[in-house]
């Protein structure tokens, strides 16, 4: 009797807790059963066939060598097929179903009119079938053809101009115009585009602190690499640089082109200029001729004559005259 009482005493405090544990366990079993049921339900559902539809953005590559793709008639294509749910899930997870690249080398290009070509979508079916892992017969395209514009490539030879920026060290400057070799290149592209091109530029680069000759290879700037290509696509650029100094020379003002007997004040003008140091000793006064600008000027109506440099050595630059204007008398 005492033993039974002892047992009751030991059970009594835990009675509510056992009830609670039993209730929680029942809930867990219920949830697990629901999940298993949903899983089986999903597996059964995914084993059924479902219709699928995808719209692809179209891209092209490998246009024929004598042609260039210049426009698209169709930019997208839609495909429809039926597949088991597993396959559709797999496509969604592992395949890019947004873009379709058409390798034009692998298709029969059909001419529609002028420069408009097309391919039959039937020819795309095999490729698409292997992509979605279905027989080709199961795939339906939204259109039977895909159109695009292919223009015949033309050729034109154009001059190359330098687009290089030179920043010289103090006193240094370009001795002569940059020498570009070759002076012209062949440009290949659609006729309509070639007609708008008279010259091409080198790439735009800047050389800083230039104080010596440079010989560089530089690419030609291609404004649209999809439309145009160059042969060659680079040129050689020779830049001759010299140290310059400022100098001046007194030059009598020449009135020989004027019928009247003119005396100017002063009679001599000073010509200032920049010259490469290597040419400095080659400067002679006889190389210069300063004369008044008399085109359209009535000598009796003006007080001063504007002077201009009529002759000068080729190797000087930045020249100016002091004074720029002279007073004069017409001697009767």
């Amino acid at each position: 009797m005492a033993k039974k009482q002892k047992y009751r005493n030991s059970i009594a405090p835990h009675k509510g807790k056992v009830k609670s544990n039993l209730s929680r366990s029942d809930n867990l079993i219920f949830v697990v059963c629901i999940i298993i049921a949903l899983l089986f339900w999903a597996l059964i559902k995914l084993s059924h066939d479902y219709p699928a539809s995808y719209t692809f953005k179209l891209k092209y590559k490998n246009a024929p060598v004598e042609k260039r793709l210049t426009g698209l008639v169709d930019t997208t294509v839609n495909i429809k097929f039926s597949a088991v749910g597993y396959s559709i899930i797999k496509l969604a997870l592992f395949e890019d179903m947004t873009e379709l690249t058409i390798d034009l080398e692998n298709f029969n290009l059909m001419k529609k009119e002028s420069n408009e070509y097309f391919i039959y979508t039937d020819e795309l079916k095999e490729e698409m079938a292997s992509r979605v892992n279905l027989p080709a017969t199961e795939i339906d395209f939204s259109r039977t053809t895909i159109g695009f514009i292919l223009e015949d490539l033309h050729e034109k030879e154009v001059e190359v101009l330098s687009n290089i920026k030179l920043q010289f060290k103090e006193q240094f400057d370009l001795y002569e115009k940059e020498i570009i070799t070759p002076t012209s290149v062949k440009v290949f592209g659609p006729k309509g585009v070639l007609d708008t091109i008279d010259h091409v530029y080198t790439q735009n680069i800047t050389l800083r602190d230039v104080d010596s000759d440079r010989d560089i290879m530089i690419y030609i700037e291609n404004p649209d690499s999809d439309l145009l290509h160059f042969d060659p696509d680079f040129v050689s650029l020779k830049i001759r640089v010299e140290k310059f100094t400022e100098s001046s020379i007194d030059t009598p003002i020449d009135f020989s082109g004027i019928d009247e007997n003119i005396k100017s004040f002063p009679a001599v003008a000073k010509v200032y200029f920049k010259v490469a140091q290597k040419d400095f000793n080659n400067i002679e006064s006889g190389q210069f001729r300063v004369a008044p600008e008399i085109g359209g000027v009535s000598l009796h109506d003006v007080d001063k004559l504007h002077l201009t440099i009529e002759e000068k050595p080729d190797f000087i630059r930045n020249e100016w005259i002091v004074p720029a204007d002279v007073e004069f008398l017409i001697i009767k």
Binding site: F265, P266, L329
Partner: peptide, 10 residues
């Protein structure tokens, strides 16, 4: 001197 030259020219 320039002025003298003008007088001389006159």
């Amino acid at each position: 001197s320039t002025v003298s030259k003008i007088f001389r020219a006159l």
